[in-house]
């Protein structure tokens, strides 16, 4: 079940059965307001959205439309002004900092645009980071699978500053995959890369969804990147204004132009 809420008027929260049990993560009537009074910014304006398990979703929209805010709130990095977000059926607003932190390291993976890796740890250690933080024993088979999927091979003992930008992002994707999270969020994960390297990373993410069954949500500016996804959501002024299934780059490009982004 997919909700596409475009109304700006506040709705009463949906009854609990409105929660999808096939969703990896869900936002219900999400509102995020930055600042106060004159400087008030409505970054999210009553957004309800659900991300299905095993799907690769892209989020697009003009700069300042609230894409990053949506991801951050859904990932438990920030709290909503009102509304609710869920990961695996758990309401994030009910969690204290410790529980939220633990949820992040067990259920959520992250890929940032840059500065994804701890400079003092080598690639392998960076991939294991969430596991080590949890003190968990890695699932050897899964770990090996993830590591080999990065294609880094003999570069695993290198520190981030000895890796290329593309290699660093591949390590970041592997790190996000390592704990087998319920969902992975990427905020412009290929935004800093050239088109060739970018394609490599997106292929890697696509493989993770198809072969490893992962759920990935990614913010992007680039229609070609969005075409790797199963579904594209379009955000504008804190609203979800449209969506598209099985997009091609050209379709996305046309839609962006029609939305004036």
């Amino acid at each position: 079940m997919t909700e596409t809420e475009t109304s700006a008027s506040p709705l009463p929260p949906p009854p609990p059965d409105a929660l999808s049990d096939t969703a990896a993560a869900q936002a219900v009537n999400a509102v995020k307001i930055y600042g106060r009074g004159d400087t008030e910014v409505h970054a999210l304006n009553n957004v309800s959205v659900s991300f299905e398990r095993g799907a690769f979703t892209a989020i697009m929209g003009p700069s300042g439309s609230g894409k990053s805010t949506l991801m951050q709130c859904m990932a438990g990095l920030d709290r909503l002004t009102s509304g609710a977000t869920f990961i695996g059926g758990v309401a994030l607003s009910t969690l204290n900092d410790k529980a939220l932190t633990e949820l992040r390291r067990e259920k959520v993976g992250f890929i940032f645009q840059s500065f994804n890796l701890i400079p003092t740890l080598n690639a392998r250690e960076n991939i294991r980071l969430p596991l080590d933080l949890a003190g968990a024993k890695p699932d050897k088979a899964w770990f090996d699978q993830v590591v080999s999927a990065t294609g880094l091979g003999d570069r695993l003992d290198h520190r981030p500053n000895e890796l290329s930008g593309g290699q660093q992002q591949r390590v970041a994707v592997a790190r996000a995959l390592a704990s087998r999270p319920a969902i992975i969020f990427g905020d412009e994960p290929t935004g800093n890369l050239d088109s060739h390297t970018s394609a490599e990373i997106l292929d890697f993410m696509r493989t993770a969804v198809d072969e490893l069954g992962q759920t990935i949500v990614m913010v992007t500016h680039d229609p070609r990147s969005a075409s790797y996804a199963d579904r594209v959501l379009f955000l504008s002024d804190g609203h979800i204004v449209d969506e598209m299934a099985k997009p091609t780059a050209d379709q996305v490009y046309d839609r962006i132009r029609s939305l004036g982004g």
Binding site: L77, D97, K98, T101, E102, R104, R105, E106, F110, F112, F115, N116, L117, I118, P119, L129, P130, L133, A134, R175, S179
Partner: peptide
């Protein structure tokens, strides 16, 4: 930034 990243991927305050 590094501490922020660590906290984001699940390092607790303690």
């Amino acid at each position: 930034r590094e501490i922020g990243l660590l906290r984001a991927v699940g390092m607790t305050r303690e």
